[in-house]
Amino acid sequence: MKEVWLHLVKWDKKLVTESLESGVDAIMTAPELIPKIRELGRMAVIAPEAGDRKMPDDVEIVIIKNKDDEKRAAELLKSKAVVVRTTDWDIIPIENLIPQGGDRLYTFVRNLDDTRTAAGILEKGVAGVVLETDEPGEISKVVKYIKEIDSETYGMAVLEIIGIKNIGIGDRVCVDTCSNINMGEGLLVGNASQGMFLVHAENIDNPYVAPRPFRINAGAVHSYVRVPGGTTRYLGELQTGDPVLIVNKDGRTYTSYVGRSKIEKRPMLVVYAADGAGNTCSVILQNAETIRLTAPDGKAVSVAELKVGDRVLGYIEKGGRHFGMAVEETIKEQ
């Protein structure tokens, strides 16, 4: 995932505070400023011979004035992160370096316009940007832009319910996240990674229990759940602090974090569905009125009211998963 670093040349409490609050990934600075940064909060720091990543051992700055400088940067990219500064903000050297180590290549930017350019070079863009600014407001704009363009998007499928069956008691996982989740949003969960359902957050008013907009009553412990980075986890292994991927009805996503994961014995049911191409999938959920899937228009549909022929949202993919990673081989999960 693309990162945003702040280049802090001199002490500025407002810049550091905004970096912490906006979600900047690291601050590049001088060693003597590290204690002041630590006083305000926990933040990854990059500094000469100090910090979480040290310069030049882990990160090196290269000023590119000619082809020899570009060649030096390319060689360094084989073993460490490189931050390049080009003369007159020329993007040609960056275009040349991305194919040689774009996942370690960073570049200095001054504002949101520079960031848009750096992130879009050769479509792939750099691994991250190092922002040089005196304006705290510029930090939040750059971070917001980078996180939005770097978020994963899924092509949501409309699934038709073909069966519902009660199966008795099982261990179900209730995921309380660190975010208040909106209507039409939830987690992608399924019995198999090839077919997953958009399980809606518990943010609906009902006569039985108060809404919990941070909560997703997600399913049985064995179920796959989508997490950032195009991978999956088992619901039963999620713990406090783990990242999860919140997905909306249009397939747009953002990352939240597990605040608490509760595993309790509850009555369960299986929902079976198929897409328009005949691909079938299923999910095991708690049998309760407050557990909901998501309709194509984003509305929540209670499993207590679900019936054959209803349509809900999900995600279908080809291939299988090995330790959460997609693999191209024949895997049948049933």
Rank of each mutant, 00 (worst) to 15 (best):
I246G: 00
D171I: 04
L188A: 08
R215Y: 03
L131Q: 00
R252W: 07
D176E: 05
E95S: 10
A157D: 14
V9S: 11
R266F: 07
N182P: 11
V109L: 04
M196A: 08
K65S: 13
R110Y: 15
I181L: 15
G229C: 00
V84W: 02
V84H: 02
D297K: 05
L76C: 01
L105W: 08
T29P: 14
V258P: 03
I169K: 13
L159G: 08
E18N: 02
K65Y: 15
G319N: 09
G195F: 08
D150S: 15
G186P: 07
A50K: 03
A304P: 04
E32T: 13
P267H: 01
E305H: 09
T87D: 12
M183R: 09
P243W: 08
A81L: 06
E148L: 02
V270Q: 04
G319Y: 09
A127G: 11
K318C: 01
P267M: 05
E148A: 06
N279E: 01
G241K: 02
E289A: 15
T87F: 15
F214M: 02
T87W: 10
P93C: 00
G314Q: 12
G219T: 08
D242A: 00
I316C: 00
V82K: 01
R266V: 07
N206V: 14
A218D: 03
I167F: 04
G186Y: 14
E123F: 10
E138W: 02
L15I: 00
I161P: 03
Q334G: 13
Y254F: 14
T294E: 03
K2C: 03
N206E: 14
G163A: 07
G101M: 06
P56W: 14
I284F: 07
V82P: 01
K124W: 07
D113R: 12
A81F: 11
T294V: 15
L112H: 11
R172G: 02
G230F: 02
I331G: 01
V225H: 09
C281V: 08
P243L: 10
G155I: 09
K13Y: 05
T240V: 09
N248H: 07
T255H: 07
S19G: 08
G320P: 04
E75S: 12
R85D: 06
H222E: 09
D113Y: 06
V142T: 00
K318N: 14
V82Q: 04
T255Q: 13
T240K: 13
A26Y: 05
D25Q: 10
M268V: 04
S22M: 13
L269F: 08
E185A: 12
K318R: 14
K124L: 07
R321K: 10
R172A: 07
V247K: 00
R72W: 04
Y224P: 06
E237S: 10
D88N: 10
E138G: 01
H222M: 10
G125A: 11
